[in-house]
């Protein structure tokens, strides 16, 4: 490889990784919002994936092709436990219990020092998340959601998003769809977490908290959830932006917050407002 290209890739490797991982996170947010729910636990699910993956690699030395699916499975189990009781209640309860989940896990990571390294976190995680793998998974995710979105399931999901009561009357099995969406979304977030811990070499207990959850939400709200591509584009914009606009530094969180406000009030369909065409 030419030296300049090597240096160039080296310089932006982390950013390019982050773009892909954030794209997956946006997709996981899309998956919950597509059935009209709000989860503030995507960061927590990501954390479970990150810790599971890192621990399996560091302690058991499992091969990465095995670590990756296991890292998606672990958050799915947690989503099942959290989602089961709360999804029957109004959407606010899911939102709050997912915030609580993030906090409970943080306390757990801090206290289970023998396993998670406590506040010191886990370091020396080998870098195994290849660029092509991240983007392949992202591509598969987008294509799969696209296909689902155009199918009968997608129509049911859209009906739920527009008016849950009506969808229920029309025979959509609401709890099943909601729980299904939450589980799938937690798996994608878990994958993203595992990929990020295997490209970062260090993870700590405070990285998957409320701030990250809000950032993930802003990906989806900026892009919109009309199509699965939209939130990914939202993620790319919001991830690349701080690098482009270094002077914005101090105002980064102000900016993220305003994006959410503006998106909810004025752009309910995001900056990419197109919607999926139905299959004939």
């Amino acid at each position: 490889m030419a030296e300049w290209l090597d240096d160039f890739l080296f310089t932006y490797e982390n950013l390019v990784h982050a773009l892909g991982v954030h794209g997956l996170l946006a997709l996981s947010m899309y998956c919950v919002m597509a059935v009209g729910q709000l989860s503030l636990g995507q960061a927590a699910f990501m954390g479970i994936g990150a810790y599971t993956g890192a621990l399996l690699t560091l302690n058991l030395g499992l091969p990465f092709w095995l670590v990756l699916p296991l890292s998606a499975l672990a958050p799915a189990l947690v989503a099942l436990v959290i989602g089961g009781p709360t999804l029957r209640l109004s959407g606010v309860y899911l939102a709050i219990s997912t915030i609580a989940l993030g906090e409970v896990l943080r306390v757990l990571y801090i206290n289970a020092e023998w396993l998670t390294g406590g506040a010191l976190g886990l370091s020396g995680i080998p870098r195994k998340a290849d660029l092509w793998l991240i983007y392949l998974l992202l591509l598969i995710g987008v294509v799969a959601f696209w296909a689902v979105g155009r199918s009968k399931i997608g129509r049911a999901m859209e009906a739920m998003r527009e008016d849950e009561a009506v969808a229920g009357v029309m025979g959509v099995n609401l709890p099943r769809y909601k729980l299904g969406a939450l589980i799938v979304s937690s798996m994608i977030a878990g994958l993203a977490g595992c990929l990020s811990s295997h490209s970062n070499s260090f993870i700590g207990p405070n990285e998957y908290g409320f701030e990250m959850a809000v950032t993930i939400l802003s990906f989806a709200l900026l892009g919109g959830i009309g199509t699965p591509v939209a939130p990914v584009i939202g993620a790319i914009i919001l991830t690349a932006l701080p690098e482009v606009l270094r002077p914005l530094q101090d105002f980064r969180l102000v900016f993220n917050g305003l994006i959410i406000v503006i998106a909810v009030l004025f752009l309910p369909r995001g900056v990419i407002p197109f919607r999926l065409r139905r299959a004939p």
Binding site: N256, G257, V264
Partner: peptide, 9 residues
Amino acid sequence: MVTLGAVLA
């Protein structure tokens, strides 16, 4: 969501 964004800002 809107109050979440606002409070962060």
